[in-house]
Every structure is written in structure tokens, then in C-alpha cells.
């Protein structure tokens, strides 16, 4: 008896559900047909306007559908830190023929980004591609890849790629899983394993960053349990200045610029990017991985410097000099 009533109730519920579903679908269908009929009836009497789209195509639009919109008066208000600087595509060229491991780039970067850990954002590697080829110095920044592996694997969109080419980190959102660091084939990311000892930096930052904290000022301040890395210095770019490493290099190794303008400069000379890469056979590190880096290298040919000169600055186990940090 109990079984029967249970079965009857199940049947009733099952049928009720099906009927309900049919009713809903039917209702949607009817309203669609009704709206079609309405649209057809007053189609013919509309006044048409000719307009030009932004691609230069002339189109016709019903006048009643055209609306005036308010022009944004201040373009800065619309600035979106995840979109970046409009109509820019930043690019860097590093000329290996000029580098002699002066390390000014590393020092300047460490100082301006308040790097207090043991791993600088810029590294200068002592490289030798094969036993018989000549050694050379290779400065390395974040590659700001167009297909960044770090961004792909981030579970919370804390690290992101901007339209202006920069890959940045939102240290306020990061969960500290370090998957981005595992994914980066260039091993460029550094991690704040403990509270960063950036000292009086908060005061400095109050003057330096009027807008307050956001991802464009990565490393200012660093946050425990999140990664940092080279940020291409959006804080200087927005002021129309070159990144710190470019400005600090005594040998003009770093060129920085805008790919849309096809121009890069190291502060002394300004060159056409396309021609420079063509003339000097520019290449990118680990090109075969398909990460599409935004940093190009010029091979160490016709060198203006002596490799041996850099050896006195070379320290395999240190990239952040902490002797003058109090």
C-alpha cells in the first residue's frame, strides 16, 4: 500500500514537471511569434538615416533608433589598469653586443622597485651557447609574452595581459599557488616567501604614487605570499619617461619603444624597430616555445666591449646588494 502511494506520487510529480516544461516552452514560442508580427507591421513607415561607421562603411539606420551619447570629457577617467595605455604596444630590444655586465640596470631596478629579497627582477647571465662559441653577457627581464604561460595557468586572473603588451600582477588578488612561476619557461618570477622588509617605503610611495595601490606599481609594496617580477615600469612610461634599466645603462644596451610607432630608443639614439631587427638579425629567447615574447635580442656580434671586463662584477650567488639597505 505504502509502495503504491509512493509510486503514484512519483508519477504525479513526473507528469506535473513535464506539463510545466511544455507550458513554459509554449509560452516562450508564442511571445516570440507575437513580437515578430509586431515588428513587421510598422516596418515600412520609418525614416532612414545614412551614417558612416568607424571603418568608413556607409550604413542605413532607422532614425528612431539613433541616439545621441555624451562624449567622455576626461579620457583619464576611463583608464583601466587591466587594459593599459591606449593605442600602445610596448617592446624592448636588448643589444648583446654592448653589454659588459656593468649591472647598473640591476641596481637601478632593485632601488626603484624596492627589491629587498635575494632575487633581483633583472639578471645578467654569463652565457656561452656551445663549447666553441664566445661567451657573452645576457641581461634578462620579464619577456612580457604575447602568449604568456603564466597568465594562462593563473586560476584567479591575478596575473594578466594588457592591450599595451604588459604582463602585470594584482598582488591583492593572488592566492600564492605559484603555478605562474612553474609555468614561466624563463623562470623570471620572484616570490615573497616572508614579509618583505621594505622599511620606510610606504612614505616614499605616498609621494610617488598619487593614485594609491594598484597593479601598475607591482613591488610597491611587495606583499607576503605573492610573486613579483619586472613590470616594464608603467609608472615611468605614463610620465613619458623610459624604464629605469634603460635610463641606468651606461652602454645603451636597452632599447624601449612602441611597436605601433615602429620606434625604439635607448635614450641616446632612436631607431626604427623593424629595420633594427632586420639589420642586426634580432631574435627572441626560446622562440620555439611559441610564447611570443615582447623582448628582442640582438646577437653579440661586432662587439664593442670586452667580455672579460664584466667578470669582476660577476657574482653567481647574489643579485641584490643589501649592504646599503638599513
Amino acid at each position: 500500500m505504502r509502495d503504491n502511494s509512493l509510486k503514484a506520487r512519483r508519477n504525479f510529480l513526473g507528469k506535473g514537471f513535464k506539463i510545466g516544461l511544455v507550458t513554459i516552452l509554449g509560452g516562450i514560442g508564442l511571445s516570440k511569434i507575437a513580437s515578430r508580427l509586431n515588428a513587421n507591421s510598422n516596418k515600412s513607415e520609418e525614416y532612414k538615416m545614412d551614417l558612416m561607421t568607424t571603418d568608413g562603411v556607409i550604413i542605413q539606420v532607422n532614425a528612431s533608433e539613433v541616439q545621441e551619447i555624451e562624449q567622455p570629457t576626461n579620457p583619464d577617467i576611463k583608464y583601466n589598469v587591466r587594459e593599459g595605455i591606449p593605442n600602445r604596444k610596448f617592446v624592448m630590444v636588448i643589444d648583446l653586443a654592448k653589454c659588459k655586465n656593468a649591472l647598473n640596470c640591476v641596481e637601478s631596478c632593485n632601488k626603484h622597485h624596492f627589491v629587498t629579497g635575494d632575487n633581483a627582477w633583472i639578471k645578467v647571465h654569463k652565457m656561452q651557447d656551445s663549447k666553441d662559441s664566445a661567451p657573452y653577457w645576457m641581461p634578462r627581464t620579464c619577456m612580457h609574452c604575447d602568449k604568456p604561460a603564466c597568465v594562462t595557468v593563473c586560476p584567479v586572473d591575478a596575473t594578466f595581459k594588457r592591450r599595451d603588451g604588459l604582463v602585470l600582477i594584482d598582488n591583492e588578488r593572488c592566492i600564492g599557488c605559484r603555478f605562474c612561476m612553474a609555468a614561466c619557461p624563463y623562470s623570471i618570477r620572484v616570490f615573497n616567501w616572508s614579509d618583505p622588509e621594505q622599511g620606510e617605503m610606504s612614505e616614499v610611495m605616498m609621494h610617488a604614487v598619487p593614485e594609491g595601490l594598484h597593479p601598475e606599481y607591482a613591488g610597491m609594496p611587495s606583499i607576503k605570499g605573492t610573486p613579483d617580477k619586472c613590470d616594464f615600469c608603467p609608472h615611468t612610461i605614463r610620465k613619458g619617461e623610459l624604464p629605469h634599466c634603460v635610463k641606468a645603462c651606461p652602454n645603451g644596451v636597452f632599447y624601449f619603444g612602441d611597436q605601433y610607432e615602429d620606434t625604439v630608443t635607448n635614450g641616446e639614439e632612436t631607431l626604427r624597430l623593424g629595420k633594427l631587427l632586420e639589420d642586426k638579425a634580432g631574435y627572441r629567447i626560446l622562440e620555439e616555445l611559441g610564447t611570443e615574447p615582447r623582448v628582442y635580442y640582438l646577437p653579440p656580434v661586432n662587439r664593442l666591449v670586452d667580455f672579460e671586463d664584466g667578470l669582476e662584477n660577476y657574482d653567481k650567488y647574489q643579485s641584490v646588494d643589501k649592504s646599503d639597505i638599513e
Partner: peptide, 20 residues
């Protein structure tokens, strides 16, 4: 996780392309 206090972000900002 270095920031277990932000565990909720895994749901708030979840991105389907990440293996995590």
C-alpha cells in the same frame, strides 16, 4: 597556498582555463 586567507578568490575570480 601561500595566501590561504584568499581561498575564496578561487570561486570569486575562477578562470576555467587554469588546471587549478
Amino acid at each position: 597556498m601561500a595566501r590561504p586567507d584568499r581561498l575564496l578568490n578561487l570561486f570569486l575570480y575562477a578562470r576555467l582555463q587554469s588546471p587549478i
